[in-house]
Write a protein that binds this DNA or RNA. Structure first.
Length: 502
RNA sequence: GGUCCUGUGGCCGAGUGGCUAGGCAAAGCUCUGCAAAAGCUUCUACAGCGGUUCGAAUCCGCUCGGGACCUCCA
C-alpha cells in the first residue's frame, strides 16, 4: 500500500509519487523570528518533522527546506513602532539583526527540545534578497507586476484573467473566486498605490526610519512577505518540487500568492502536493497573536502561565500533537495535556522494557497463536496507518494495545513464550522504528553518568534489607521520601525493585 | 456578507455504512506488609429532527451550536 497524502490543491487524498524518485523536495514555511514561538507553532514543525522522518524511512532521499523570515516590517512584538520612538530609545533598543538572532536561537532551542530534526537547509529571507529581486524583475518583465512610488505590486487581476484560461485561476488553492472578494479590504498604508485592492506587494519602498533596507532597481526598500518563499524554494528545490507544507492559515493569501508568483516566473506550478496542518485551539478558538490567547513554548515548558496547571515537557507536547490527526483542530486543555503526559510515560516504560530487557526466550512456535497473530497485526498496521495520510493517532492506538500485551508479559501475567521468537524480534524492531525514529519520542531523563543510578541502587538495597527484617518503618521512609523527591520505587513481583524519575 | 470546516461517552481524540478505536479520569477485583506500578473487569457515546438503506456516528436534507479563512498569522 503506497503512501497517500491529502493534497489541499485537489482536495483529495492522492498517492504520493515524487517527481524524481528517490529524491524528494519538501518546503515548509518557517517562523517569523520577531517573537517567541507558541504552542500553535509547534504543530506544523512536528507534523512535517514526522513526515520528513517517514519519507526517509520509506527510502526517499529528502531535501527538507524550512525558511526563517527575518526581513520585512520588523518590530519586536509588544514594542512600539520604530518611527515612534526617539533616537535615544533607538540606542537602547536591539539592532534588528540582534532581535532576529535572539529569536532564532530561541526557536532552534525549542525545536531541539521538541526533538525535531533540523531541516536540510534553513535559508533566511535576508540572505536571499538578490534572488528575490531577480524574481521580481522577471515578473515585471512578463507584465504581471508594476512599480508605484518605489514599491512593486503583483497584478492579481491580470494574472487571474490570463491563467484562468490555463485552468489555474488566482484562488486555485484556497477555492476563492477573485470576483467574490471585492469588498471588505483592509485599510492598509499605501493602499492607494495599488491598481486593485487584491494586488499584493512584491517589494516595498522603505520609509526613512525603516532600518532594514536594501538597494533595488526601485530604490531602497525590503521584500514583500510572499516572495521569499518563492525565491528560496526555487533556488534549493527547483521550479517544481514535491511537497509544500505549512499551516492552514497560510493557504490564503500566502500560498496562493506563492503559486501566482512562481507560476509567472517559472511557467509551472511550484509544488505538486500542498499539505496543511490544522490549528491548535484553546477553548475552541484558534491560538494566535490576534486573539491574544497564545501560550509560548517557553511557558509550556516551565508552566509559567495563568492557563497552565503545571509545566509540560516538550515530548509531552509532541505526543499530544501526534495523538490527533494533523488535519483536524486540536484543543488545548490541562486535562488533555496531563493525559498525554501519563500516556507517554506508560508507552515509554513499556517500550524501554521491550528494547532493553525483553528476551527472545521463546521458541519459533508461539504458545498463544491468537495473541501472536494479534501482535503481528497491530505492528503490521503501523505502516498502513501512516500511509493513510499520516494517521499517527491510529498508530499510537495500536501501540497502546501492544503496551497491554507487553506489560502482561513483563509482569508475568502471561508467559513470555506466548509469542514466537520472530514475533518478539519484529515487535522490538518496529517499536524502535516508530517510537524513536519516526515519531521522534525519547526519554526526558537527563544522563547523569550513572551516579544517580548507583545511589538509588544503594537505597533500594537498604530498603530490601529492611523489608526482609519486616522493618516497614525504614522501608516506607525510604520509599516515601524518594517520592517526595520525585523518584518512585516499584516493588516487582519477583522481589526486585525498580524506579522511575519524574 | 462571501467561501469552507465542524459538533463523538467526565476530558482529549480516531473512525473506509454492518465488527471494542486509543489515551486520561472514575468504580470493582488481582497482586502487595501497606502502597505504587501493572493486569483484568465495568462505564459502550456519536447535537436534534427527518430521509436514503436490510443496516448510518459514517450518505442526503433541515434546524440548532461551535470554528476557520476572506487582514499579520503555524
Amino acid at each position: 500500500m503506497p503512501l497517500k497524502v491529502y493534497n489541499s490543491l485537489t482536495r483529495k487524498k492522492e498517492e504520493f509519487i515524487p517527481i524524481n524518485s528517490p529524491y524528494v523536495g519538501m518546503y515548509v514555511c518557517g517562523p517569523t523570528v520577531s517573537g517567541e514561538s507558541h504552542l500553535g507553532h509547534a504543530r506544523p514543525y512536528i507534523t512535517f518533522d514526522v513526515l520528513y522522518r517517514y519519507l526517509m524511512h520509506l527510502g526517499y532521499k529528502v531535501r527538507y527546506v524550512r525558511n526563517l523570515t527575518d526581513a520585512g516590517h520588523f518590530e519586536e512584538e509588544g514594542r512600539e513602532a520604530e518611527d515612534k520612538i526617539s533616537k535615544k530609545a533607538i540606542l537602547e533598543k536591539l539592532e534588528p539583526m540582534e532581535l532576529v538572532q535572539k529569536y532564532t536561537n530561541l526557536y532552534h532551542w525549542a525545536m531541539n527540545r521538541l526533538n525535531n530534526l533540523p531541516p536540510s537547509i534553513e535559508p533566511t529571507a535576508t540572505g536571499h534578497i538578490i534572488e528575490q529581486i531577480e524574481m521580481i524583475k522577471k515578473i515585471i518583465a512578463d507584465g504581471y507586476a508594476y512599480e508605484a512610488n518605489g514599491s512593486v505590486y503583483f497584478d492579481v487581476e491580470k494574472y487571474n484573467t490570463d491563467f484562468s484560461k490555463k485552468g489555474q485561476p488566482y484562488g486555485i488553492l484556497s477555492g476563492r473566486i477573485l470576483e467574490d472578494q471585492l469588498d471588505s479590504t483592509r485599510e492598509l498604508d499605501n493602499q492607494g498605490e495599488k491598481r486593485d485592492p487584491s494586488d499584493f506587494a512584491l517589494w516595498k519602498n522603505a520609509p526613512p526610519e525603516h532600518i532594514m533596507r536594501w538597494q533595488s532597481p526601485w530604490g531602497e526598500g525590503f521584500p514583500g512577505w510572499h516572495i521569499e518563499c518563492s525565491a528560496m524554494s526555487k533556488k534549493y528545490l527547483g521550479d517544481e518540487f514535491d511537497i509544500h507544507g505549512g499551516g492552514m492559515d497560510l493557504q490564503f493569501p500566502h500560498h496562493e500568492c506563492e503559486i501566482a508568483q512562481s507560476t509567472v516566473c517559472n511557467h509551472t506550478m511550484p509544488a505538486r502536493y500542498w499539505l496543511h496542518n490544522n490549528m491548535i485551539t484553546i477553548n475552541g478558538k484558534k491560538m494566535g497573536k490576534s486573539y491574544n490567547n497564545v501560550i509560548k513554548l517557553t511557558e509550556m515548558f516551565n508552566g509559567n502561565h495563568p492557563m497552565l496547571a503545571q509545566a509540560y515537557s516538550p515530548l509531552t507536547i509532541r505526543f499530544f500533537i501526534l495523538q490527533s490527526h494533523y488535519r483536524g483542530t486540536l484543543d488545548f486543555g490541562n486535562d488533555a495535556l496531563q493525559a498525554s503526559e501519563k500516556a507517554l510515560k506508560r508507552l515509554w516504560e513499556a517500550y524501554e522494557w521491550v528494547s532493553s530487557e525483553m528476551l527472545v526466550v521463546s521458541g519459533e512456535l508461539a504458545a498463544d497463536k491468537l495473541l501472536d497473530a494479534k501482535v503481528l497485526k497491530l505492528v503490521g498496521e503501523f505502516d498502513e496507518f501512516m500511509n493513510d495520510d499520516l494517521n499517527t493517532a491510529k498508530v499510537l492506538a495500536n501501540m497502546f494495545e501492544l503496551v497491554s500485551v507487553i506489560n502482561a508479559i513483563k509482569d508475568k501475567h502471561i508467559p513470555a513464550a506466548s509469542l514466537s521468537a520472530s514475533t518478539v524480534s519484529i515487535l522490538k524492531q518496529q517499536l524502535k522504528l516508530f517510537v524513536e525514529d519516526i515519531f521522534g519520542l525519547k526519554t526526558e531523563q537527563a544522563n547523569d553518568n550513572g551516579k544517580l543510578d548507583g545511589v538509588l541502587q544503594l537505597l533500594i538495597d537498604i530498603r530490601k534489607e529492611a523489608k526482609t527484617r519486616k522493618d516497614f518503618v525504614t522501608s516506607d521512609k525510604i520509599r516515601n521520601e524518594l517520592i517526595a523527591l520525585g523518584v518512585q520505587l516499584k516493588d516487582e513481583k519477583d522481589g526486585g525493585m525498580s524506579y522511575t524519575i519524574g
